[in-house]
Design a binder for these strands. Structure first.
Lengths: 209, 209, 209, 209
DNA sequence: AATGAATGAGCTTTCATTCAT
DNA sequence: CATGAATGAAAGCTCATTCAT
């Protein structure tokens, strides 16, 4: 039940605050282990071994195991959402904005931060209420961008249902890709973005040609 | 972090093999606790307390905690898939068959077996490889029904992308509903089924009028 | 710094609730170890070893190490104070009552419960505020008996200072005996009781002839 | 259980070797923390924080945490005993000498060095045998003064019991004052000295008028 | 079948001490 | 002298599982 074959830390991607500082190295290792083994099944000794330090040393950088988990989530959100917000600035039409959001969310899940994003979804309940709130606050702005974009499209009759519900269905379709999408397969990320766009705007051809 | 306010067992739904036998009562309690607390964070003592027996007694019915988890999953699959297969028998067109599959999967996730289905998704990694295989074998027939139906629709040009990928996106959208759908809200299960149908068959109006 | 040479449990006295039940055996061992090593320097593994069980098994009987400490204190108080109260019933004069209190307190400190009473004094600060209150409540009745008796003697001019202060000085003199009194020496417990009486009632000869 | 509200170092009294040198500041802080939290429950980080340095820096001044403890005790003894010895020089009669000893011991316990003296009593067992011996050697001269004085008084029939035992009872009564005496209350240190004198010399009036 | 005391390995976290800078 | 990251042994406590009754 316990996955013992670990990547070496060098194979785990570096991005944003998850750099080569001691703190960053711990967070990268944690994102990986929490993803493949689960948070509860990952011991601080597992984590320390992968980082290459003693387990006691972890507590110089983080006050508790939970603080490591919440930091993984916060860094993942910060890194991805800031990138997406930048791209949103340059998108003019609601259609373009939707594509930015879909592609951005797919990239966050399927790219280098995928493991951290997966942890964000699957280990949510491992967080105390206080920590959940810290993370929720970070998400708010991002989710508002989605709802605003889908509402614009709704006024154009491009989206057939209320923004809130439609966002939820799309969020599920996108989140689930982590379970089956393989970057080395025939389906490119562009192709996948197109597929989700087709789901999001059913009568796409009427609007986009 | 630990949810201590527990339903009483009487509030947890009875269905199929999760009846009022000792075994059934354990599985119902387990589905509930594994759903709200997670498998790792649920102790056998938590489980025994909710069932109203001593923790040692659990091991007369199940050989291990993992066996309880895998049984929850198996019973959930057996109960839901057999019901869906029956309904499929009576559906003539691929469109009707798709609607049966979508409504059936939504019911399994949002109805009385919802907690067990959620456990099936979220605690998958807690299973050893052997147990995962036992469950996968049960799922095969069911997934084949989905692929066959979507392929039929693909030949009618009603579905724009390969069945495998399309099934995955729909599976995600449906699975995710457990996170946000509230039966007491304004959206009925019929309404939700319609929304997912709209995603599944983008140019629905051309085919279904 | 750590005392490693331990008595065997059989040498540690049995009294009251500290009987041969599992709970009683833990409390007797704890009183001994907390006395000779101190509470903080005694590990639950030390304690379990002396009892002859595994360290995890301690937590079937007590919810925490602190709960063991507070139980040692409570049982010591209950056992000694009830014995003293019984003897007080049969003492007619305030002089006789004072002698009962002095002898009783000396016996509690120098007799079989001496280690537990010492723990009560010396490990007081190891207790959380809540646990301190639990113990204080038990002590109240007993201390009231002392004050009442000394006040009676004050009205007879046998005690030259206010009861509160006099009690405190005597309490110190008595408590301190655990540091130097040796039952195998020439001074008997009766003799020691006489000495403390002489301190308590300076012009004793005027009253007691 | 852990006291976190700390005095600032400025409030902790300066005396003797516990001056404003780095070494003195550590010892003053240690006396305070060891007194209110206990030696074991005080971490070197607690101590360093109160002093205003980093924990590693403590080890430039003291070779170990135990060395800090033993130094607190030694300085307390040296400072108080030298002061008392000076006063003894000027006391002519055994009665006067006894009063000097009682007042001096009360001052050491209730005055600026009270916390250090309390540590001397209550953390004695935290010392290794070697360190205990170092401190015992310092005490010897002082205790000899007590015994000699009480023996003189015994020859005058002013003290009714052997000096050794009487000293022990008085030592307890005096030591215990730290638990209940409040300098801001109605009882002055002179008054308290009188009370202990009354205990020490029961038929005081016959000798002192 | 059911009990519940006992197990014992393993968990997260603490902390005095070291040492390169 | 001072720093503060790192150490690593040991702490209190948890918990799935066993088994005599």
């Amino acid at each position: 039940m316990k996955v013992r074959k670990l990547k070496s830390l060098a194979e785990i991607p570096v991005m944003g605050a998850l750099d080569d500082s001691p703190r960053g190295r711990v967070l990268r290792a944690a994102a990986h282990l929490f993803h493949v083994q689960g948070y509860e099944r990952t011991t601080v000794r597992d984590l320390a071994r992968l980082v290459g330090i003693q387990s006691g040393s972890l507590f110089h950088h983080f006050s508790s195991k939970e603080e490591i988990l919440v930091s993984v989530m916060e860094e993942a959100i910060r890194y991805n959402f800031s990138r997406i917000q930048e791209n949103l600035q340059q998108a003019q039409s609601p259609f373009a904005r939707l594509e930015v959001l879909i592609r951005g969310e797919l990239e966050s899940i399927l790219g280098p931060t995928g493991e951290a994003m997966s942890v964000l979804v699957y280990e949510w309940d491992a967080l105390s209420a206080d920590c959940q709130q810290r993370v929720l606050t970070l998400r708010e702005v991002y989710e508002a961008s989605w709802l605003q974009t889908l509402e614009s499209l709704g006024q154009l009759h491009a989206v057939p249902y209320p923004a809130f519900f439609w966002r939820r269905l799309l969020a599920g379709a996108i989140a689930w890709t982590s379970h089956w999408y393989r970057p080395e397969g025939s389906l490119t990320l562009d192709g996948l973005t197109g597929m989700v766009m087709a789901m999001a705007i059913p009568k796409q051809s009427e609007y986009l040609n």
